[in-house]
């Protein structure tokens, strides 16, 4: 990742802001500026997703590229957001064997990566199991 490429989509990465087609109401995350259904007869506008969803499929990454090598093992999943679109994201769990298809998750703000010790830090959205907080 480079700084301009990261920066360009900061609102989308931090806050799950996607797009919606004003013609057919279909929502997109990751954002698309062109609705594949309505094509040029549609127009897309920003759309805020609520950050809740369900695990469609997942894996545990045990061997990663350099940028993620110090985070392994971690759970990577495809999540269907409640509004419809599916997104690829990490799921933060206590034990990587916890991940399940159908698991309800909610979004959290986490550090995604960094350019070494002195470069830019990339923040973004991960998900955690959507379990209620309990008192003790």
């Amino acid at each position: 990742m480079s700084v301009p490429r990261f920066w360009r989509k900061i609102p989308q990465r931090y806050n799950l802001i996607g797009t919606q087609c004003t013609s057919c109401s279909r929502t997109f995350y990751p954002p698309r500026s062109f609705c594949p259904d309505c094509r040029r007869s549609g127009e897309t506008v920003p759309y805020q997703f609520q950050g809740k969803g369900e695990v469609v499929t997942y894996t545990v990454i045990r061997s990663a590229s350099d940028a993620f090598a110090q985070q392994t093992p971690f759970v990577l999943a495809i999540i269907r957001l409640d509004e419809g679109p599916r997104v690829t994201a990490q799921i933060v769990v206590e034990n990587v064997n916890e991940a399940r298809i159908g698991m309800r998750v909610r979004s959290v703000f986490r550090r995604i990566g960094a350019e070494g010790d002195s470069g830019a830090i990339y923040y973004g959205t991960k998900f955690v199991p959507d379990v209620p907080y309990i008192d003790a």
């Binding site: 931090y14 933060v92 959290v108 550090r111 830090i121 923040y123 991960k126």
Partner: peptide
């Protein structure tokens, strides 16, 4: 903190 948490992520949450 978790491996991917820092002062900024804690502040945001």
């Amino acid at each position: 903190p978790d491996l991917d948490e820092d002062t900024a992520t804690i502040a945001v949450e």
